[in-house]
Design a protein around this nucleic acid. Structure first.
Length: 263
DNA sequence: AAGCACACCTGCTAGC
DNA sequence: TGCTAGCAGGTGTGCT
């Protein structure tokens, strides 16, 4: 999504903003405040920190977006394009195009903040691009089990429920292993698996499940779900050993794993 | 520090 | 065909 935004919207100037869904801009006191922070600005940089998208503005402020469970950012060629249900925020550019934030469950959000990003204080280093030494340091002294640990955005930012399962399977590690009891070689395997899974997932433009909730800026689903080894595959054969994939609930989330391959 | 329950929402599907 | 229970990519809070 960051790459799509960078390719499509670099240099675009905001002509108007309509935020009809108050929950989507809940960090602002009202829609007028949110609108005032954006109208007239030029979109200059496109970054990402974990699951947060960071659009740098020429005011030196940053437009932050988080899609949460069901958010979509869609680029319409014109304001006349049909508007989807649950389309809560519309950013119109001077060239007539319109960026739309669509979010049925309204867990996602947009906000404008300063470049120091005080709202994101406490977020760990991005899981994609962290080096082996930093990765090991983030796990050091942590007694938590690996599945909840990988989901903790303060430890590493960017790993969600799909990719934590794929990473643990790729590393051959069981969800219940304690981080501080891993052998150094296992920590290195977990780091390598994190890099490998996230890199491949980005290359495949993300994972879209049956309801195609995640789509790119053009509304197209990703392709990494075709490569999932375990996530959503309960009962299907493990790609490595053929044993049926199991599903359990860990940290109030579904977890998919192979009893034979993950120890 | 860790783990758990629950809250926030809408929509879809499986099962009856 | 119609109903309901369960589940969904995430995070924040409050409690033990």
């Amino acid at each position: 999504m960051r790459r799509d935004l960078a390719g499509a919207l670099g240099g675009a100037v905001v002509a108007d903003v309509a935020a009809t869904g108050p929950r989507s801009i809940r960090r602002h006191p009202d829609a007028a405040t949110f609108r005032a922070a954006l109208v007239g600005t030029r979109l200059e940089t496109f970054g990402r920190w974990g699951k947060y998208l960071l659009v740098g503005l020429d005011t030196s402020d940053v437009l932050v977006a988080h899609l949460r469970m069901s958010g979509q950012l869609l680029l319409a060629a014109s304001t006349a394009d049909p508007v989807a249900k649950h389309s809560h925020v519309h950013v119109t550019f001077t060239d007539g195009r319109q960026l739309r934030f669509v979010d049925p469950r309204t867990f996602g959000e947009l906000f404008v903040t300063t470049a120091a990003l005080p709202e994101l204080a406490g977020l760990g280093p991005d899981a994609l691009g962290v080096d082996a030494a930093t990765f090991a340091a983030r796990l050091r002294g942590r007694r938590a089990r690996l599945k909840p640990l990988l989901l903790d955005q303060r430890v590493l930012a960017g790993i969600g429920n799909i990719y934590s399962d794929e990473i643990l399977w790729t590393a051959g590690l069981r969800w219940s292993r304690q981080a501080d009891r891993l052998r150094p070689v296992e920590v290195r395997r977990l780091h390598a698996a994190t890099t490998e899974v996230l890199t491949a997932a980005v290359e495949q433009r993300g994972s879209s499940l049956a309801d195609a909730q995640y789509v790119d800026l053009s509304g197209r689903p990703g392709g990494y779900q075709e490569h999932h080894a375990v996530y959503g595959r309960m009962g299907a054969p493990c790609p490595r050993c053929g044993r049926p994939i199991e599903r359990i609930v860990v940290a109030q989330r579904s977890h998919f794993w192979c009893r034979r391959c993950q120890r």
